[in-house]
């Protein structure tokens, strides 16, 4: 009799468990499909050490348009600086961790080549006037791109820096630019057209104090 009761109880548990396994399996499959879809758009960013900045490039399908998924830990001041002299970000760290998509996009606006950045806020800096814009126009895909975290997930310690993007003109565009650009643009855009760096750049060494009488 007891055996029969045990078997009946086990059968009931099996029936309930079977239904639960089916319904939780359905939910898990649905969430996995949603997760996979979102990973296509934002990249997968598993967090290892929560005290470090985690970063992974996301493909955009557009030349000179770069994006990264970034996990910013709590109390991590995020600042940036680009080669066009524009800096920004959130020097005051947020008290809680957050994720974001950062973008850098080089594009032409009214004949002027601009570097658009969107991290903690959007900003834009002029890269060059019409001669530089016409040098690049239609040849965006020829520019040599070095994008940080494009191959794998990267981490940055608090206070560390990383060059997210470096755009270099190929030799033929360098030669053409030497003829067409003005001296200032030649010195600042050849061979490296643009860089964008996370974290503060190292301060220039202070000149040695001059002693009175020297």
């Amino acid at each position: 009799m007891i055996r029969r009761i045990i078997e009946v109880v086990l059968l009931i548990l099996l029936a309930i468990g079977g239904y639960q396994a089916w319904s939780t399996g359905q939910e898990r499959t649905r969430l996995q499909a949603e997760f996979d879809r979102l990973v296509q758009a934002t990249g997968d960013l598993p967090i290892g050490d929560p005290s470090k900045l985690h970063i992974r490039a996301i493909p955009t399908g557009e030349p000179l348009h770069f994006a990264w998924r970034i996990h910013v830990p709590a109390n991590y001041p995020l600042v940036y600086q680009d080669s066009a002299g524009m800096g920004g970000g959130s020097p005051r760290a947020m008290t809680s961790a957050y994720d974001m998509i950062a973008r850098v996009r080089i594009h032409e606006v009214d004949g002027v080549l601009q570097a658009f950045k969107n991290l903690t806020g959007a900003g834009s800096s002029n890269l060059g006037e019409s001669t530089l814009a016409s040098l690049i126009r239609g040849r965006e895909s020829k520019i040599l791109v070095e994008q940080f975290a494009s191959q794998r997930l990267e981490t940055i310690d608090l206070g560390g820096t990383a060059e997210l993007i470096r755009l270099t003109l190929p030799p033929d565009l360098q030669a053409e630019g030497q003829k067409s650009l003005d001296p200032y643009e030649r010195s600042t855009k050849i061979p490296v057209l643009y860089t964008f760096r996370l974290g503060k750049t190292k301060p220039k060494p202070e000149p040695a104090p001059t002693l009175p009488g020297n």
Partner: peptide, 30 residues
């Protein structure tokens, strides 16, 4: 069979919670 089924339920629930937490982080980004 009961142990295997309820273990599956446990694993499914744990994985769903993990996926859901990561989805909630990603959804506002897109």
């Amino acid at each position: 069979a009961v142990v295997a089924t309820w273990l599956t339920v446990h694993v499914n629930r744990r994985e769903s919670a993990r996926l859901d937490a990561r989805i909630q982080v990603m959804k506002p980004l897109i």
